[in-house]
Simulated assay, not measured.
Amino acid sequence: MVRLPLTAAEVERGRRLGALLRRARGDRPMLDVALAARVSPETLRKIESGRVATPAFPTVAAIAGVLGLSLDAVWAEINATAHEPVPAGGHQRRAR
């Protein structure tokens, strides 16, 4: 199977996902979060650094769950057109 190169948009979404997860993790050790999410610390490190721009959904869901992030907040963050970070608690104000 040949994997196509990532688009610029996919790379940017990966960068945003990594930044969100790093902010949400805060001072918690990477090892603790990775083990709680049942992923390797290296996988978490690669996602947080943007080196894995398109991680599997179950991986993202597990990490988000450990960090207390809603998947809606994760989706909103990585697909934001005008990048405004979602707070680490995972709540974002809705425009009225």
Rank of each mutant, 00 (worst) to 15 (best):
residue 6 L to T: 04
residue 5 P to M: 05
residue 16 R to D: 03
residue 29 P to G: 03
residue 77 E to G: 01
residue 71 L to I: 13
residue 21 L to Y: 00
residue 3 R to K: 14
residue 32 D to G: 09
residue 81 T to W: 10
residue 43 T to P: 03
residue 94 R to T: 09
residue 57 F to M: 08
residue 46 K to L: 13
residue 84 E to N: 05
residue 4 L to E: 11
residue 22 R to W: 07
residue 88 A to Q: 04
residue 85 P to L: 04
residue 12 E to M: 14
residue 1 M to S: 13
residue 66 V to L: 07
residue 59 T to A: 13
residue 52 V to I: 14
residue 53 A to G: 13
residue 96 R to Q: 12
residue 80 A to R: 08
residue 86 V to H: 03
residue 95 A to W: 13
residue 25 R to P: 02
residue 25 R to N: 07
residue 23 R to Y: 03
residue 51 R to Y: 10
residue 38 R to W: 05
residue 71 L to N: 04
residue 68 G to K: 06
residue 39 V to R: 01
residue 66 V to D: 01
residue 46 K to P: 04
residue 68 G to W: 05
residue 95 A to D: 14
residue 54 T to I: 12
residue 47 I to H: 09
residue 21 L to E: 00
residue 44 L to Y: 00
residue 52 V to A: 13
residue 36 A to D: 14
residue 17 L to M: 09
residue 81 T to V: 13
residue 25 R to E: 10
residue 46 K to A: 10
residue 46 K to N: 15
residue 55 P to F: 01
residue 24 A to D: 06
residue 82 A to S: 10
residue 82 A to K: 12
residue 54 T to G: 10
residue 28 R to P: 02
residue 6 L to P: 04
residue 47 I to W: 13
residue 56 A to D: 15
residue 57 F to N: 04
residue 79 N to A: 08
residue 7 T to G: 08
residue 44 L to N: 00
residue 2 V to F: 09
residue 25 R to T: 07
residue 57 F to T: 08
residue 44 L to K: 00
residue 55 P to E: 03
residue 25 R to L: 09
residue 18 G to N: 12
residue 15 R to M: 14
residue 58 P to E: 15
residue 67 L to I: 07
residue 59 T to V: 15
residue 33 V to S: 03
residue 39 V to P: 02
residue 66 V to Q: 01
residue 76 A to K: 03
residue 84 E to W: 04
residue 55 P to N: 02
residue 49 S to F: 02
residue 1 M to Y: 12
residue 96 R to V: 13
residue 85 P to V: 01
residue 52 V to R: 14
residue 63 I to R: 00
residue 10 E to I: 09
residue 20 L to W: 01
residue 35 L to Q: 10
residue 54 T to L: 12
residue 51 R to T: 10
residue 83 H to Q: 10
residue 8 A to Y: 06
residue 2 V to L: 07
residue 13 R to P: 06
residue 19 A to W: 03
residue 94 R to M: 08
residue 49 S to W: 02
residue 69 L to C: 13
residue 59 T to N: 11
residue 27 D to A: 12
residue 7 T to H: 11
residue 15 R to L: 15
residue 52 V to F: 15
residue 25 R to G: 07
residue 51 R to W: 09
